[in-house]
């Protein structure tokens, strides 16, 4: 009988361990279940995002409204005297340099889209996507070739524009965008195109991975103005002669 009792006690010991592990495992699976984002949370965040986006849209409209009013003030001021007329011309020049004015001119339109090559298993899918760096390089090349104004998906590139990867999208002027990317540039169309098509240049390196590139020369491109906010918090201009 003691033989049987011994066996039972040993089995009871293993059973004890089993119970312990069962509870621990049960607890950890329960915890991991709750760690996943619940549907409710997703809905909450979605509505929150939507309200914030609506708000942003409203603010953008407000900004456009304010700009328009400013313009009206300038126009009315210009009527007053020739001095203000000259000042207004000067202001217009500065605006053009800053990219705050819509304009037209000859140039090229480049369309970039993700690769449609069949991917081989084991290949890095990242190579077949357009990255912020690719756009940055194209824009850089265009400016180097003498482009006077460049926009990406209707976002004008100005002095403070960023071209940055944000998850699966690219952010320019704080606006997120996804492929296809339409890059417009105003300048000498021949120069712009040949600078991109240079042997060993940016287009060639993109086409290795099957990125779809099309370049069209156009006589008239409508270049949008920069519509985002302009804020200088830290920069203070130094007056000449001081």
């Amino acid at each position: 009988m003691s033989y049987k009792l011994k066996g039972h006690i040993l089995i009871a010991l293993v059973c004890f361990l089993l119970g312990l592990m069962l509870v621990a495992q049960f607890r950890s699976t329960q915890k991991s279940g709750s760690a996943l984002t619940s549907l409710q949370r997703i809905q909450e965040l979605t509505t929150e995002l939507k309200t914030v986006m609506d708000e942003r849209e409203k603010l953008r409209e407000e900004l456009a409204e304010m700009r328009k009013r400013l313009e009206e003030y300038e126009n009315s001021a210009a009527n007053v005297s020739q001095v203000t007329e000259a000042m207004k011309r000067e202001l217009e020049k500065a605006r053009i340099a800053a990219g705050l004015v819509e304009g037209t001119g000859p140039g090229i339109v480049i369309t970039l889209n993700d690769s449609n090559l069949p991917k081989q298993p084991g290949e890095d899918p990242n190579l077949f996507l357009i990255h912020d760096e690719d756009i940055l390089k194209v824009v850089n090349e265009l400016f180097a070739a003498g482009a006077e104004a460049v926009s990406v998906n209707n976002q004008r590139i100005i002095a403070t524009s960023e071209i940055r990867c944000v998850g699966p999208t690219i952010m320019i002027n704080s606006v997120r965008m996804a492929p296809p990317f339409v890059i417009q540039a105003i300048g000498n169309p021949e120069n712009l195109e040949s600078s991109l098509r240079m042997r060993g240049g940016i287009i060639e390196s993109l086409q290795v991975f099957g990125i779809q590139v099309s370049i069209k020369k156009q006589d008239k491109i409508i270049m949008p103005a920069y519509t985002g906010p302009i804020k200088f918090e830290y920069f203070k201009p130094v007056k000449a002669g001081e």
Binding site: A12, F16, L18, L20, L22, V23
Partner: peptide, 11 residues
């Protein structure tokens, strides 16, 4: 005895 062991373990 094994069942008691299991219950003890769970507790």
């Amino acid at each position: 005895i094994p069942i008691i062991g299991l219950i003890l373990g769970i507790l």
